[in-house]
Design a protein around this nucleic acid. Structure first.
Lengths: 338, 338
DNA sequence: CTGTTAGCGCTTTCAA
DNA sequence: TTGAAAGCGCTAACAG
């Protein structure tokens, strides 16, 4: 059995109350008393029981993080976000309760699971665009931060990269290399980021007044396979393309494989640029040019927001997007002279 | 405020006690009463407060997972283990509290952090061989499962892949392809798995009576850079090598890059086989032959063991290792005819 | 400055 | 079969 406040009280000769106040830094305790109590606490190796504290104070010091749809998602991405959340939480003396794909199986909603566990706010990732949970959380009034999915409740907000910016950076990069016929392989449209990346792509095309057909866009699903398929279809239908912007690194690996199979040299014949900057982007050959998302920072921001909301009843953090960065590697190069 | 057992009692007309027993499935409650209470509970959307439950019952339904040394480790590996732990925990109705690299910063030990939070057992990963925490946990008597590090307390055990088997599989594979001069690039020796992989390598060499020099072994540190360095040194000093077994996929990417730089064709001139089978192993070119660890299962096993220990005061799961699997891809091939 | 009392939401004797 | 009372470990009025 762990030592309780009672033990400290007994041994120090003070009441439980006084011990509590001394330990919690109240100033209505004489310095002498505090010192003695601190001393005893140290001797006894006493640490307050957080769940008892939580029960009585109703002050929350636990975050809940829900990771839905782990499989279809890109794992390294998730892990970096989680790392950011954990680190920021630890810094703020918050614990992190992790809920997996199967946690909602019972039909319980995230805020119910949280309330039941003394968790003050929820970070949710891996949601699809029209998941009913979004509305549930909007209306629940429970502090919620979504990752990569918009939400607009009184106590709900979201964090995401500036995906439009990312697309623009990709297009600009390609245009700077002389490309004018640029294809786009997108992820599935159940992901909000896909919508944004598409907008960015179109914006880029317009801004540079590039030649344009709707056949330049292939609708993938974030899988490597869909990258391969997209590459083949795009190049077969539009042999004039000299560059392809791919909405995820994983799909981009598929694209590169397929193009290579089709006899194209990368980047000599065709430039390929991805999105995310996952770890392997720098390990594959050719190394992959891509748009980096700061995933760790995404986690940090999510944690900051949820913690701010928990600490302040009436605070709803304003929305802002994280900047993406162009990472230029080997898979993109100057357009071939025709 | 969430609905409490009190609300259910009031609305149903029964006492708190009876409600508690009805909900917890005690059989000294008439069926009629139970039905009514269940009904009211449903109407009120009542779910018991787990932290209050925990406080009074001292029955633990939370696992603590500590991830130390995140950076030097391989993130996708960790994430899969965590996924396994989460899924198994959820299945058993356990919650998972995640502690990051900085959580022990305060000087608190894992079991103290856990006790303080009503956490019944700890899974720890990312520990180095001689970390004092190992002994602390051995002696603490707190249910503990380490990942990839041996421990032998009364309430402490560990899970790991059979790394010796993995090495043997790698060597056998190479020998089957006709290789006899096989180099080895290991991880740093602060990792127990490195010791094991080394043993397996030596065993393999012996079993097949292969020609052998201590110069065939390079001591890396799991980083890609060390893979590159190792490849260069190994091939410079031992040009007779036709294959290299590398103790991690990440290092293997470095090896392949460096060998390619040096003008070797893979696998025509030299075969390379990694360890882990991380995601990118199948995305790089050439695709990487490797020894797969079932990381997800590692997580499942860790969770099972810790849960079994929590549920049973006197149970210490016996130790066993998870089988590894040879994954043969493009980076290994028959030895070149000389 | 310190202690008494009450109570967070729940389970568990013990009586009725 | 049900309920009253005590208590898990802690904090928070409220007196003194």
């Amino acid at each position: 059995m762990a030592t309780t406040i009672r033990d400290v009280a007994k041994k120090s000769g003070y009441s439980i109350t006084t011990v509590s106040r001394a330990l919690n830094g109240y100033d209505d305790v004489s310095e002498e008393t505090r010192e003695k109590i601190l001393q005893v606490a140290k001797e006894l190796n006493y640490y307050p029981n957080r769940i008892a504290q939580n029960l009585v104070t109703k002050r929350f010091n636990t975050l809940g993080m829900f990771i839905l749809e782990r499989m279809t998602f890109q794992q390294p991405f998730i892990f970096e976000v989680v790392s950011g959340v954990v680190d920021e939480a630890t810094k703020e003396d918050f614990d992190l309760l992790l809920f997996g794909t199967q946690s909602l199986r019972s039909g319980m909603k995230p805020h119910q699971m949280c309330t039941q566990r003394g968790v003050g706010g929820a970070i949710i990732m891996g949601l699809r665009l029209h998941d009913p949970i979004i509305q549930v959380m909007e209306e629940s009034g429970f502090p919620t931060v979504l990752i990569d999915i918009p939400i607009k409740g009184k106590r709900a907000t979201f964090v995401a990269s500036d995906n439009q910016l990312g697309s623009l950076q990709a297009i600009n990069h390609l245009v700077n290399l002389g490309h004018r016929h640029i294809g786009f392989i997108n992820g599935h449209l159940e992901a909000w980021v896909s919508l944004e990346r598409l907008k960015g792509y179109k914006k880029g095309i317009e801004e540079h007044s590039l030649p344009w057909k709707s056949e330049y866009i292939f609708q993938g699903d974030f899988s490597k396979e869909s990258g391969k398929k997209g590459a083949r279809i795009l190049m077969t239908q539009n042999p004039e393309l000299t560059a392809i912007f791919v909405a995820s690194d994983l799909m981009a690996t598929g694209v590169i494989e397929e193009l290579t199979l089709m006899g194209y040299k990368i980047p000599d014949d065709i430039s390929v640029i991805g999105f995310d900057d996952l770890d392997f982007a720098s390990h594959i050959k050719p190394t992959l040019s891509t748009i980096r998302q700061d995933k760790y920072q995404l986690g940090i921001e999510a944690a900051r927001k949820i913690i701010a909301m928990i600490k302040n009843e009436n605070y709803l953090p304003e929305q802002h997007f994280l900047k993406t960065t162009l990472i230029s590697r080997e898979s993109t190069g100057p357009v071939r002279i025709e």
